[in-house]
Write a protein that binds this DNA or RNA. Structure first.
Lengths: 126, 126
DNA sequence: TAGTATCTACTACAGTCATAGTAAATAAAA
DNA sequence: TTTTATTTACTATGACTGTAGTAGATACTA
């Protein structure tokens, strides 16, 4: 299992670690907007579970506080999410593209950019 | 709630309904590949739950069997999934495109096609 | 009509998740 | 050093999910 499935809350924890680097439970908790900040112990429980799943790990101890860090990269995790979605669509990107276009989320500019990226890669690879 | 979140199994049930139209529990169950076909009652329970969520509904009764049909369109459900994913990426399509390109899932042909679709739409809309 | 097959409705159960409380340990402050 | 604040480790709980069994109703068949 390259990287296990992450839940919504777990992803938020990962975001905190990806953005701010290794952090204590308290630090992770405080990245949540004040009005929707889960209790300290909620974050704690989640992080412990993530530790079991091996997606975060303890890197050191400061005072009595453990410091955790991400054990999977943002790209890996995000890639997993995308592949997952794609699977639901039978692995075809076409329906995804259609939806993005129809909802106006994909602009000509995005396409141009993608085109460039693709060209650059294929030139390098060939 | 436009359309509630659907789980993996629920989506498979929806697929069955979208593909084959209104169906009985038995018919839905039989769309699963034989080697990974859940028990009749598993499908039944799932469909009942989906009925509560209002994503399917009973359309008629044949013999003693109820016939269910989808109450949300494939596009709506799929759109929901995509939007959901996009939210995780802060609403930006860019990281998604990058991943698709990097994993070779998005080809130049796909881009051309998307380009065409986009052009056609914007011409019509403008 | 009696027996067999099918379906519904209900119940059960274990796993995961989001949520959080509490007791005990540890560290910091007065 | 006694008090106060912070952390850890453990426990609890209520949704939701995937899984499926069972009793009773209904329909089909010989």
């Amino acid at each position: 299992m390259r990287s296990p499935k992450l839940t919504k809350l777990e992803l938020k924890v990962m975001e905190a670690l990806w953005n701010n680097g290794a952090s204590s439970i308290r630090e992770i908790q405080e990245t949540f907007p004040e009005d929707k900040r889960p209790a300290y112990t909620t974050v704690q429980t989640t992080v412990y579970r993530m530790e079991n799943k091996k997606v975060v790990h303890r890197v050191k101890k400061i005072g009595n506080a453990h410091i955790f860090d991400a054990a999977v990269s943002r790209d890996a995790a995000h890639g997993k999410l995308i592949d997952n979605l794609l699977n639901i669509f039978g692995g075809s990107v076409q329906p995804v593209m259609s939806h993005l276009i129809e909802t106006g989320k994909l602009t000509m500019g995005d396409l141009e950019e993608a085109r460039e990226t693709l060209r650059r890669i294929s030139t390098k690879e060939t």
